[in-house]
Each structure stands twice: as C-alpha cells, then as structure tokens.
C-alpha cells in the first residue's frame, strides 16, 4: 500500500447555492519518500486535496489513508507551508521554527527543560536554508523569500514524514523562487520526507517532483499522472533540456485542454 492513498475520494462543500463538488472521485497514490506535484487550472480543488490528505476535512465519499491507516482526523505528523509564510510576528525567527516542537510528541514535554538543545536544532535547520545567524531577528525584518525559508524550516523542524506545500513560492519573484526550489530540493535530498506540492508553476513541478498529477477544472478530478525520470541530483539547467521542455509542453497542453472544457 502506498504511503498516501486516495481512492474514490470526493468532497462537496455546502454553500448557500447548494452543494459544490470540489473534488470528484480522485484516485492518487504517493509512495513513501516520493516527491509529487499536483498541477491544474486555478480553482480546481488543489487546496481541497491538501485539507483531505492532512485530515483537516473529512471526505464526503471515498477514503484517504496515510501510512497504512485511514485518516479520520487531523494527522498530527504533517508539516505544512503556504503561499503566505504565516509566521508569528511576536516570536523571533528561532521561536517561530520551534513552534511545532511545542506541540508534537515527544518534544512538547522536553522543550522547556532542554531549551538549549532545541535552540541549536532550530539554528541548525536555519543554517541549511542559508539563514545562519538570523535566529534572533523578527519575521518582519526579513524579506519575503527569507520568510518563506523560515516557513519551510518550521514545516520540517519536527522531521515530519509528510510535507504538504500549497503554492509556497507563488508570491515570490522569479529569481528568489528558483533559489528556493534549490533549497527545497536540498532539504528533500537530505531528509527524504514524502512531499505533496500543489503548484501552478509547471517548471517548478518538473524541477522538483518525481511524479506530477494533473487535475481538471472544478469539480477537480485527477486526469493524468506523469513520471519525471530526469536523473537526480538536478540543477536548474535541466529545465532547458529537451526532456524537461517536452514534459512542460505536454503538461501545458493538458491543462489548456482542461481549461477550455
């Protein structure tokens, strides 16, 4: 059984105008340690997928299972990062990174008595994303790209088995975005967590992912699955190779087709 598995999963929201089907009988399987990207036109229920996998919302039909167990409530192990860094302005960068450790077991009961050890841990992960020495700063003193790095650190500091990313680089400028692709690539290479990245940037998906799922417009359905067998380690140059360009082209074509329906 795959690490993350959706079978026949649907979600309908109840709104004033009746029921809206956000996700329609989606099937998806992500192996342990796999990096998958989900791409699709805007409003296709990509974020709904995130909520279902993390157990923040129960599906209205079908099942979701993670690590061999059916998801019946919030996961308790997943790291998440969003388009906005959502850092807490009253905490320093280091304390922001430490936030998950104040909640997840077994750290929550140790963090007070082993403060130093945990601070070093936060500093170590900040260093891996190029933010050595920024621990005592406040989030608002950092640029958008740096804040997003902190957000990634916060999502990964408790070494989750599953990382969920919802368009984490969408608000950044092109150069910063590419920089952060490499940061994420290196983090994944090192920790090998299972990662689900929701994005609308096809180059981002090809550069980072092992597999790409293409979704249809609302109601969201998973239409295609591509395996990206570009060898690793990858650097940004591969995006200009024939193989990558071909995949991006195909993806573009498929999404354009979906949009016209």
């Amino acid at each position: 059984m795959a690490f993350v598995e959706l079978s026949g999963t649907s979600l309908a929201y109840r709104t004033r105008d009746g029921e809206v089907l956000a996700l329609d009988a989606a099937d998806m399987a992500v192996e342990k340690g796999e990096f998958t990207a989900v791409v699709g036109p805007s409003g296709c229920g990509k974020s709904t997928l995130m909520k279902l996998v993390t157990g923040l919302r129960p599906p209205t039909a079908g099942t979701v299972s993670v690590a061999g167990e059916r998801v019946r409530g919030p996961l308790k192990i997943a790291g998440m990062a969003f388009q906005n860094a959502t850092l807490l302005p009253w905490r320093t960068v280091r304390d922001n990174v430490l936030l998950p450790l104040e909640i997840v077991k077994p750290h929550r009961s140790r963090i007070r008595s082993h403060r130093r050890e945990y601070e070093e841990r936060a500093d170590a992960i900040l260093e891996t994303v190029g933010l050595a020495g920024f621990g005592d700063r406040f989030p608002w003193e950092l640029s958008g790209g740096m804040q997003q790095r902190v957000s990634l650190c916060r999502a990964l500091v408790h070494e989750p088995e599953l990382l969920m990313l919802d368009e984490p680089f969408a608000a950044l400028d092109a150069f910063t975005r590419e920089e952060l692709w490499c940061v994420l690539r290196d983090l994944w290479q090192e920790q090998h967590f299972t990662c689900i990245l929701v994005t609308h940037d096809l180059r981002e998906a090809v550069f980072l992912a092992d597999t790409i799922h293409v979704m249809s417009a609302r109601p969201g359905r998973i239409l295609h699955r591509h395996v990206i067998d570009i060898p690793r380690p990858r650097d940004l140059e591969i995006l200009y190779d024939r193989a990558s360009v071909d995949i991006i082209h195909t993806l573009r074509h498929q999404i354009a087709g979906v949009r016209q329906q």
């Binding site: 993390t54 996961l75 308790k76 906005n84 959502t86």
Partner: peptide, 18 residues
C-alpha cells in the same frame, strides 16, 4: 486568526486550547 495558521497547528495535532 488566519485559517492557514490554524491548519498548520491542527495538522500537528494541536488542540483548540493550544
């Protein structure tokens, strides 16, 4: 409170009180 912030904490298993 930003819903994303709430999601981050809930996905870690935080209670409403936390």
């Amino acid at each position: 409170l930003e819903p994303e912030m709430e999601d981050v904490l809930r996905a870690l298993g935080a209670s409403k009180l936390e």
